Amino acid sequence: MLNVKYLQKYRDDTNERNALCDAAIHARFNTLILPLDLDDSFRLRCSGEI
């Protein structure tokens, strides 16, 4: 499964990002954190693959 998040808090707040990634990994989701403008200014990834 693929999940994409655009909220700035996941980029700026390490605790929020870690909680999101922990939940994604537990649910076996691959999660991307992307900018809302989709301008490739950043891309963060949490992998739920085992």
Results as ranks from 00 to 15, higher is better:
Lys9Asp: 11
Asn3Arg: 14
Cys21Trp: 03
Leu44Gly: 04
Leu44Pro: 01
Leu32Gln: 11
Ala27Asp: 13
Ser47Tyr: 03
Leu36Trp: 05
Asn30Ile: 13
Lys9Met: 11
Asp40Cys: 07
Lys9Thr: 15
Asp22Thr: 15
Leu38Cys: 06
His26Met: 10
Tyr6Ala: 06
Leu36Gly: 12
Arg11Ile: 04
Ile33Arg: 01
Arg17Trp: 01
Ser41Cys: 01
Tyr6Glu: 13
Leu34Phe: 03
Val4Gly: 00
His26Tyr: 06
Cys46Gln: 10
Ser47Met: 06
Thr14Tyr: 00
Ile25Val: 12
Leu7Ile: 03
Lys9His: 01
Ala27Ser: 11
Gly48Cys: 03
Leu38Thr: 07
Asp37Tyr: 01
Lys5Pro: 02
Cys21Asn: 10
Phe42Met: 09
Asn18Ile: 08
Ala24Leu: 03
Asp12Leu: 15
Asn18His: 07
Asn15Gln: 15
Asn30Gln: 09
Leu2Gln: 14
Cys46Arg: 06
Leu2Ser: 11
Arg17Asp: 04
Lys9Tyr: 00
Tyr6Thr: 15
Ile25Gln: 10
Phe42Ala: 08
Ser41Ala: 04
Ser41Tyr: 01
Ala27Cys: 01
Asn18Arg: 14
Ala27Val: 00
Leu2Glu: 14
Phe42Ser: 10
Leu34Ala: 12
Asn3Cys: 07
Leu32Asn: 08
Ser41Pro: 03
Cys46Ser: 09
Arg43Cys: 01
Gln8Cys: 04
Met1Tyr: 04
Glu16Lys: 15
Leu20Asn: 00
Arg45Pro: 01
Asp37Gly: 10
Leu20Ala: 00
Gln8Val: 14
Met1His: 07
Ala23His: 08
Phe42Glu: 09
Asp37Cys: 03
Asn15Cys: 02
Ser41Asn: 09
Asp13Gln: 10
Ile33Tyr: 00
Ala24Gln: 02
Thr31Ser: 05
Pro35Glu: 05
Leu20Val: 08
Asp13Met: 02
Asn3Ser: 11
Ile50Gln: 10
Arg17Gln: 07
Asp12Phe: 01
Val4His: 00
Ala24Val: 08
Cys21Ser: 08
Asn15Met: 09
Arg45Ile: 12
Ile25Gly: 03
Phe29Lys: 13
Glu16Ile: 09
Asp37Thr: 14
Tyr6Val: 13
Asn15Glu: 15
Asn30Arg: 10
Asp40Lys: 12
Leu7Gln: 15
Leu44Thr: 00
Glu16Thr: 14
Asp37Met: 09
Asn15Tyr: 03
Leu44Ile: 10
Ala24Phe: 02
Arg28Cys: 12
Leu44Tyr: 06
Ala19Pro: 10
Tyr10Asn: 11
Asn3Thr: 10
Ile33Ser: 03
Lys5Ala: 05
Leu2Asp: 14
Leu7Val: 05
Arg28Tyr: 07
Leu38Trp: 02
Thr31Lys: 02
Leu2Phe: 03
Asp12Trp: 06
His26Leu: 13
Ala23Ser: 14
Ser47Asn: 12
Gln8Phe: 04
Asn30His: 05
Glu49Cys: 01
Arg45Tyr: 08
Ala23Leu: 13
Ala24Ile: 07
Leu20Pro: 04
Val4Trp: 05
Ser41Met: 02
Lys5Phe: 00
Leu2Lys: 13
Glu16Leu: 07
Leu7Ala: 14
Ile25Phe: 02
Pro35Phe: 00
Lys5Arg: 14
Lys9Gly: 04
Glu49Arg: 07
Glu49Met: 04
Ala23Trp: 08
Cys46Phe: 04
Asn3Pro: 05
Gln8Ala: 08
Thr14Phe: 00
Glu16His: 08
Asp22Cys: 04
Asp13Val: 11
Asn15Thr: 15
